[in-house]
Design a protein around this nucleic acid. Structure first.
Ligand SMILES: [Mn+2]
Ligand SMILES: [Mn+2]
Ligand SMILES: [Zn+2]
Ligand SMILES: [Zn+2]
Lengths: 126, 126
DNA sequence: CTACTTTCGCGACTGAGTTGCATTAACAAT
DNA sequence: ATTGTTAATGCAACTCAGTCGCGAAAGTAG
């Protein structure tokens, strides 16, 4: 169980994800809202939003934690298996809608698949 | 240019990777050799070994940095594009020899592909 | 052995992320 | 609208992986 009360801080963070479809690093989010709330609050809100299947997280190439909006997830079922793309020039991170087939690994049970591609995004490769 | 002098510390670290084919986190390596060398030295040796194409690095699910032996790389060309598998029970990490096809992403140039699978390894799923 | 330069140890530091606790603010009930 | 309950927040202190600067030690060539 994640979000129970719709506080001002929760609304602020949610709006950031609503208005743009791109992923945000926690560090960047903290910077954006630093006049409105404490960094601990940002971490806690992101935690709760993720638990509720509203956003999902992954690690960037830099080792930072990134979050982006989910498309068809709920608190009980997280279905975000898509890869992510981090631009090495502008550092923007996107969720990719491509399907990547993982072959079954002999004698192993695969629970999760994290795929991070890096390179140049549409803007930077043009 | 990485390793220039074969010091005792370098030999010690190299042996760890020689004797077993599995990946090691830096934190674990530091623990293993803590009586023989300083942690800063471990970081620096790993850096140099990677530059020379002797080992390669990647991020674990935990966010820690992991290293494993390379198979056909050199200082000029790193060809480790294989996925990695982290066991959620024993926490062991392996390099996988499977080929995973990444479809071309429209209007993007892909430079690197990091794939991390998690689940149960051969031992833990048996 | 000597001279040169890389490598190392150590201590201090950085920065992302966490924790504990007192205070504030949702919100449901009255 | 007022009150009571407790989730959520702010703040300060903390953790811990990873980095940095610098003097000392050790590898290597001559
Ligand atoms: Mn995504
Ligand atoms: Mn590997
Ligand atoms: Zn870009
Ligand atoms: Zn295992």
């Amino acid at each position: 169980m994640g979000i129970i009360r719709k506080t001002k801080s929760v609304t602020t963070v949610l709006q950031i994800f609503e208005e743009k479809q791109e992923a945000k690093s926690v560090v960047n989010l903290i910077e954006i809202v630093k006049d409105k709330m404490n960094k601990t609050t940002v971490y806690r809100i992101l935690d709760r939003l993720e638990q509720d299947g509203i956003i999902h997280s992954f690690n960037g190439k830099d080792g930072l934690k990134w979050y982006a909006k989910c498309k068809g997830c709920s608190a009980s079922h997280h279905s975000d298996k898509h890869p992510h793309f981090q631009c090495t020039e502008c550092n923007k991170v996107e969720c990719l809608s491509v399907e990547i087939k993982i072959p079954s690994i002999k004698n192993h049970i695969v629970d999760s698949t994290d795929i991070l591609l890096t390179g140049q995004c549409e803007v930077c490769s043009a």
